[in-house]
C-alpha cells in the first residue's frame, strides 16, 4: 500500500522532499537563528577583502622607495608621512580638496532639495515624468564624457564664449580652473543627492504640511519646522555621499582642472603611477581614508545614526 502511494507521488514533490532533507542536513533547525548572518556573509566577505587591501596599503605606507631599484625598502619608516607633512604642496592639495568638497556638498544639497520636493509633490504626471527623465538621463553619460562635454561648452572657442564674443563681449576663462571643477562636480553629484532625498520626502505625509498650514504657519515656517527636520535622514545621507564622492574624485579635477588644480586623488595617482612611489601613494591614501572616516563619524555623531532610519537602542 505504502509503496503504491509513494509511486503516486509526483516527481517534483520527491525532488522537493529531497531538497528539504538536504537543507536540513546542511542547515539544521538549530542554526535558524543565524539565517540573517548567512545572508550577510557575501557582503561581509566583500568588506573583508576591502579591509585586507587596506591592510596592505597601510603596510606599504611605512616603507620608503629605494631609487636604485625602484622597490620599497624592507625596513619600516615614517618617511612617507614626513614627506606629506614637510611638503606644503600636499597640505595645499588636501585643503583644496576639502574646500571643494564642502562647497560642492552645500550647493548640491541646496539645488537637490527643491528638485526632489517638486518631483514627489507635483500633481502633474507629465511634470513628474519630465523631472524623472532629467534626473536619470545624466546617469547614462559617464563622468569623463560629461567633463569633456563641459570642455566643449565652456572652452575658449566653446558655446558660451562664442555667444559672448558674438555680442561684443570679451572671452572668459571658464575652464581649467578651480571653479570649473566645482561646477562640473555639482552637476555630477546632483542626481545622487536627489535620489537620496526623494525617499525622505516621500515618507513625510502631506497631512503634516496641511496641518501646519491649518494651524497658521506660512510655507517658510512649514518648510523650516516640519519638512526640513523630517527630511533630515535624506539630507544627512546625501551630505555623506556627496561629500565623500567629491573628496575622492579624480576625473573632474584631471579634465577640468588643466593640471594645476589637483585633488588628493590626483596626487595619489601621480605617486603610484607618475613617480612610481607606491609607499607615498599608500600614505596619501591612508590619510584620505582616515580623514574621510573621521568626518563621516563626526557627522553621524552629531546628526545621529537615527537620521538614516537606523534604530537606536532605547533605555
Amino acid at each position: 500500500m505504502q509503496s503504491r502511494n509513494s509511486k503516486n507521488i509526483p516527481a517534483s514533490w520527491k525532488l522537493l522532499d529531497l531538497a528539504e532533507r538536504l537543507l536540513v542536513t546542511i542547515w539544521p533547525a538549530r542554526l535558524n537563528k543565524y539565517v540573517g548572518w548567512g545572508f550577510l556573509l557575501p557582503a561581509l566577505l566583500l568588506v573583508g577583502i576591502l579591509l585586507i587591501g587596506l591592510g596592505y596599503i597601510i603596510e606599504y605606507s611605512f616603507h620608503e622607495l629605494d631609487l636604485a631599484t625602484y622597490r620599497l625598502k624592507a625596513e619600516y619608516s615614517l618617511t612617507n608621512y614626513h614627506t606629506f607633512i614637510n611638503r606644503p604642496v600636499y597640505l595645499h592639495i588636501l585643503g583644496r580638496t576639502m574646500l571643494a568638497s564642502i562647497i560642492v556638498t552645500i550647493i548640491t544639497l541646496i539645488l537637490a532639495f527643491p528638485y526632489a520636493y517638486m518631483l514627489v509633490r507635483t500633481r502633474s504626471a507629465m511634470m513628474r515624468k519630465f523631472l524623472l527623465i532629467a534626473l536619470f538621463l545624466p546617469f547614462f553619460i559617464g563622468q569623463v564624457v560629461r567633463a569633456y562635454g563641459w570642455l566643449i561648452i565652456l572652452g575658449k572657442q566653446g558655446f558660451v564664449n562664442s555667444i559672448l564674443t558674438s555680442i561684443g563681449l570679451p572671452e572668459l576663462d571658464l575652464i581649467y580652473n578651480f571653479q570649473a571643477i566645482v561646477f562640473g562636480l555639482i552637476q555630477y553629484m546632483l542626481p545622487f543627492a536627489i535620489l537620496l532625498i526623494i525617499p525622505a520626502i516621500t515618507s513625510i505625509s502631506e497631512d503634516f504640511e496641511l496641518a501646519s498650514e491649518g494651524l497658521g504657519a506660512n510655507w517658510v515656517s512649514t518648510f523650516r519646522h516640519v519638512v526640513l527636520p523630517m527630511a533630515k535622514p535624506g539630507l544627512v545621507g546625501s551630505f555623506v555621499v556627496v561629500f565623500t564622492l567629491t573628496m575622492t574624485d579624480f576625473a573632474m579635477p584631471e579634465i577640468l582642472g588643466g593640471g594645476t588644480s589637483d585633488f588628493i586623488a590626483n596626487a595619489i595617482y601621480d605617486s603610484f603611477f607618475q613617480i612610481s612611489n607606491p609607499g607615498l601613494g599608500a600614505a596619501l591614501s591612508v590619510l584620505l581614508v582616515a580623514i574621510g572616516s573621521i568626518i563621516v563619524t563626526a557627522i553621524f555623531y552629531f546628526a545621529g545614526t537615527g537620521t538614516l532610519g537606523i534604530r537606536q537602542k532605547t533605555r
Binding site: P88, H92, D262, A267, D270, I275, N277
Partner: peptide, 14 residues
C-alpha cells in the same frame, strides 16, 4: 626625474 616631477608638482599645485 622623480625629484624633478615632485618639485614641478609642488610649484604648480602649490
Amino acid at each position: 626625474q622623480p625629484i624633478w616631477f615632485a618639485k614641478f608638482n609642488e610649484i604648480f599645485q602649490g
